[in-house]
Nucleic acid binder design. Structure first.
Lengths: 254, 254
DNA sequence: GTCTATACCACGATAGAC
DNA sequence: GTCTATCGTGGTATAGAC
């Protein structure tokens, strides 16, 4: 708790840096945001980042922790409430809601930055930088474990490996959707749909996710259907027809 | 068609650069791969990239086009075969197979680089760099449009906007899963499952995706269920309990 | 046409003055 | 706590060798 700030409401240098870094991280990812952009937007000196955080890597970790730590806590707390209140009546819908609702709730608070917050989550879970990935992996193993066992309880008919895959699916789908300014705009062009509030999106998302998690395991019928499709006459030529690029030997890869 | 190469089998300087850039792109994303890394791995001069491609941006676009153009062609070609062969008997499973099979097929060719290829697709669809995103968006609008209308045909009960969202979901889920070295390792730790061949992963993926796409629209029952969960006693305190970070005003964001 | 050497400005990081 | 100067490395541009 610092006291006697140099000016009236400069909102704390550290916080200003965090905010500016978060904005730039959302729009371009970790590697493309520069210290000079950050410190410029925050109207602080270039060296301030290194003084307050130590390095650009440490800064992004602080940015991630500020949002994700509390989110992680809320997710686990919500799961705790569901489990202790409902006992054996816990369903996989509840577990999914515990995963998604803490993010959706930001909207109900009326925060105008809510859209950006979800976008931030998507970026955090998909950024290719090893700094970001390692942080996510090391800091949220516990949370993921809690949800894994909760899903296992509500979906006992799934084998461990199928459950693992479907949880991976759920996380990947969520990340991909949140991260995707990619397809979002494109799809809107086809549907001529005006931009949904993302809270609506997340509630629709839960429906799809439940359907996927509860899907029957692919039996013999589905497997053979898949095989039949793959062997439909006419398909075998497709690979060769445009193989000019795909068939390259790719020799030099170390 | 170049002739009389300077040396016997230097595999073409241009191709060597493309291969090296692709490898580095898969492991770290666009922004973190440096020209000096690329040219070093390809054993060419630093300036060769600028000579053959013009810039780092143009290089990554060439890398993307080399793989994605033929993939896009194969996807559309496969959809054409399904539509002309099956007519009205076309199902949404077929459309999904047309989307995924061209990627899965790489495995059947026995290419040892198949795993890396799928990883590459994931990176391409999730990389935060605006260069990569813009390329994906501008070059594959047509393909996406073809699949949109095919889905619309096989799922006539869905409204345009629901279909748009679900297609967005399908793309996002696929991207997130392919890109995710994130959760993949973590999940494996819980399941103690050995690394699956990614072809198996994609066949399992189709099952989940079909379930999600065919999911019944959230009716009044589901909506109220969702509402009930959100208002369970005990939940309303969760946001406040750890609001120290989440409730910040976030004033400086431009 | 193809490749090389080298010079250029922006980047992250750090030491030291204030 | 804050700022300036500086170092090594990033992408880029170009002049000249083959």
């Amino acid at each position: 708790m610092p006291q006697a700030p140099t000016r009236l409401s400069p909102a704390d240098t550290k916080t200003r840096i965090l905010d500016a870094a978060e904005t730039l991280f959302v729009s371009g990812g970790f590697e493309s945001m520069s210290m000079r952009q950050i410190t410029g937007a925050a109207t602080v000196n270039l060296a301030a980042v290194n003084y307050h955080f130590g390095s650009k890597d440490a800064l992004i970790q602080a940015v991630l922790a500020r949002r994700l730590d509390s989110l992680s806590e809320q997710r686990v707390a919500m799961l705790d409430v569901f489990e202790s209140t409902l006992g054996d009546k816990l369903t996989c819908e509840h577990v999914l809601v515990a995963m998604f609702l803490p993010a959706v709730r930001i909207f109900r608070s009326g925060d105008p930055l809510a859209d950006r917050y979800l976008h931030f989550l998507g970026r955090a879970y998909t950024d290719p930088s090893s700094v970001v990935r390692d942080f996510i992996n090391t800091h949220y193993t516990q949370t993921l474990g809690r949800f894994f066992f909760a899903f296992q309880r509500t979906l006992p008919e799934l084998r461990r490996e199928d459950l693992g895959f479907r949880l991976h699916f759920a996380m990947g789908a969520l990340s991909g959707i949140l991260a995707g300014g990619n397809t979002q705009r494109l799809i809107r062009d086809f549907t001529q749909e005006q931009s949904d509030h993302e809270a609506v999106i997340l509630s629709r998302l839960t429906t799809l996710m439940v359907a996927a998690l509860k899907a029957p395991l692919p039996g013999a019928a589905e497997a053979s259907l898949f095989g039949e499709m793959a062997n439909l006459p006419g398909l075998e030529l497709i690979g060769q027809a445009s193989a000019h690029a795909a068939a390259e030997p790719d020799a030099v890869l170390s």
